[in-house]
Every structure is written in structure tokens, then in C-alpha cells.
Simulated assay, not measured.
Amino acid sequence: MKETLKIQAVELLKNLIETQSFSSEEEGTAVHIESWFQIQDIPFKRTKNNIWAVNKYFDASKPTLLLNSHHDTVKPNKAYTKDPFKAEVEDGKLYGLGSNDAGGCLVSLLSVFAYFFSRKDLQYNLVMVASAEEESSGPNGLNSMLKIIPNIDVAIVGEPTQMHLAVAEKGLVVFDVIVKGTPSHAAHPNDDNAIYNCIPVLEWFKNYKFEKGSETLGDVKLTVSQISGGLQHNAVPSDVNIVVDVRVNDSYTNKEIVEILKSEAPVHSIEARSLRLNSSSIPMDHALVKAGISIGRNTYGSPTLSDQAVLSCPSLKMGPGDSIRSHSADEFIHLYEIEEGIDIYIELLEKVL
């Protein structure tokens, strides 16, 4: 059964690659995933572009384990030398947009769900969600499914981790900052130039350090990522807009980060766009983590964001592929990584389910 599932997984991934599925435009890939469920003879439901199913012998008295990965992609960057929408195999590598992030994870988890679907003796229920809008953190992704699917107790979120265990993940708060000044003609003296006023502000953000670190996630990472101001060469603007990206460790809540920066940042205005993308983790003594360690997987804290951020239960990020390839030109995944991923997922869950 496993070998057949591996073959079908690669074929599904090829179909996903060759179907455009930018965030909120996943209709085509949703149809391919529906077809895969039909081939497996597994009942499923579709909520917008999210496809989901539960194991055959679902028992409400048991705890529930979520298996999740996404089928949306970012847009291809201009450095591609290959057709991003052509599934091309060269030297054991499957090229194409979304192959690594997170198509390989998705088809592997779907295969694992099918492998355990008809088992009667499971200690956990299984819920599989192939979700939309992960890359854009949109309103119709996994976050929208949490009131629709059964209540979950723990989750495995499929993202490329080389099948190691990301036991914690940083959260994200994005801030919009305004630095003000006095507008004027560029030919006249102006000691309150908003652009020059940004210099000490940028230095403050560059040098600011949050006090509390984390054993698994390290320090909070604060980065000025955008700046804009002024419309023409001879007019000094009244204000400059700055965007600050803050990656939050598990020593702070997003709300605490907002309160700290609002009270300390030397700016006229600083506003958070959202507080919902929180840091996430799973206890090191959780059965899933212990099982992963017992089969030789390493543990680490992840600096990148995933759908873990919308979950309130313990969650583990784990999947085939390498995060370094995500959003890169000529994205690829090794075929052996998908096969190995399916094997390792099954070996892990056999110890828990």
C-alpha cells in the first residue's frame, strides 16, 4: 500500500505544480485534491478552497490529531530559469512552483492519512486539512476551518523541515510607523525634515533589544523592512512611513510586544496590523516529540511562520524538503524526500496512534 501511495503522491504533486494556485486562487488545485480523495475512496468535504476529511472510525471520545499542509503558493520570482508551472524531473529532483513549499509536505501527509484512514485501533482521531491562503495569512485558510472541523488536541503542520521536528515557531507582528516633520519647499531651510527625522528612529530600531530570550526560539527579531516618503524632488514630505517586522519568541505574547513598542519607540505613531499570528510550540515531553526523537529526528526552533500561528493547541512543524528552497527560483524537491517523508511520518505515528 505504501508504494502505491508514494507513486500517487508524486503524480498528485505534479498536477498541483501545473495548476496555478496563488493564495485565494486555489480552485484548480482544490479540484485535484478532491480527485485524489475520490481515487482513495475516502469521503471528504470542501469548504471554499479547503479540502478536509476525518478517519473512517472517528470516535468523539478520543483526542484528535490534525494533519495539515497548504496548497496555495506565492507568485514566482523573476529569477526563474525554468517554467514554474511545469512539473519537470531532472536527476531525481521534481522542479516547479510549490514543489517544496509545501506540495511535498501536503502529498506526503495525504498519503499518511490514507494509510491510517481505515484503522480501527487508533488512539487518536485523525483530521486531514489541505488548506488555502497560508502564504497570505488570508481569512479563508486554516484559521477559518477551526470552527468547522472537530476540535483538535494536537497538530502536525507540514512545512519543509528535512523531516526534523520544529518544536516551536516564532510569531509575527507587523507595525506601521509614522515619523512626522514639517513639509516645505526643498529650496528653503527646514530643521524639521521628516526624512532626516527618520535617522535616529532607524538607529533606535536597529539597536533595540527585547530583554527575554527563549531556549528554543532565541531572541525576538526586529527588522525595519520598508520605508517610504515624499512624492517629488523639490518637496519635503510631512511624514515618512516605516514598516517594522517583529518575529516574536515564546517569552512574549504579541500583545506584550505591542505594549512595549508603543511605550518605548521614539515615533509619532506606531500601530500593529494584527495580533493573531502568535508563537507556537509543543512540550518536549509530548508523545509526538518523544516518538520523533526515538526515531532519530532532531528538534529545533523555527524562525519562519506557518499555519501553526493560528492554532491554540500544541503543534509540531515537520515535513520533507528544505526551508531554504522555499520561495526561491527554480524551486524543487527531491523525489526521495517525498518517499522518505511518507515513511518517517508513518514510523512516527505508529508510535503514537
Rank of each mutant, 00 (worst) to 15 (best):
G181D: 06
G92K: 11
D330S: 14
F116W: 05
V244H: 11
Y95M: 09
G104K: 05
K82S: 02
V310G: 03
E34M: 10
E25M: 14
I242C: 08
Q20G: 12
L126V: 02
G141F: 07
T299G: 05
V167D: 11
G229H: 07
N77G: 15
D192S: 15
A265I: 02
N100G: 10
G230L: 07
F116H: 08
E264H: 03
Q162K: 10
H268I: 00
H32W: 15
Y124M: 09
I227Y: 02
R46A: 10
P303A: 11
S269W: 00
L222Q: 13
F116P: 06
C105Y: 05
L12Q: 07
G28Y: 11
P150A: 08
V201N: 09
L146H: 05
K45P: 00
N15G: 14
L109H: 01
P183M: 10
A30T: 13
Q226N: 10
D101R: 03
G141D: 12
I17A: 11
V352Q: 14
A265K: 05
G218A: 04
K62A: 13
S144E: 11
I156V: 14
V10M: 08
E203T: 04
P63M: 10
A272V: 06
F113R: 01
K2V: 14
M318V: 08
K317G: 01
F210V: 08
L165F: 10
S184W: 00
D191K: 06
V154F: 07
E26N: 09
I195V: 15
D72G: 13
K147Y: 02
G103D: 05
A130E: 02
A132M: 10
G98Y: 05
Y208H: 11
M318W: 12
S263T: 14
K290F: 00
R276H: 09
S263Q: 15
S131W: 04
L261C: 13
S144G: 04
L65P: 04
N49Q: 14
V240A: 10
A194L: 03
I42L: 07
S144L: 02
G92V: 12
V89F: 03
Q20C: 06
E337L: 01
S23V: 00
G103V: 03
V246L: 08
P43R: 06
R46I: 09
A235V: 15
S251F: 09
N100D: 15
V112C: 08
R46M: 09
V54G: 00
G230H: 06
G218L: 03
Y95N: 09
A187V: 07
L106H: 02
E34P: 01
T253Q: 10
A291F: 01
S118N: 15
M128G: 03
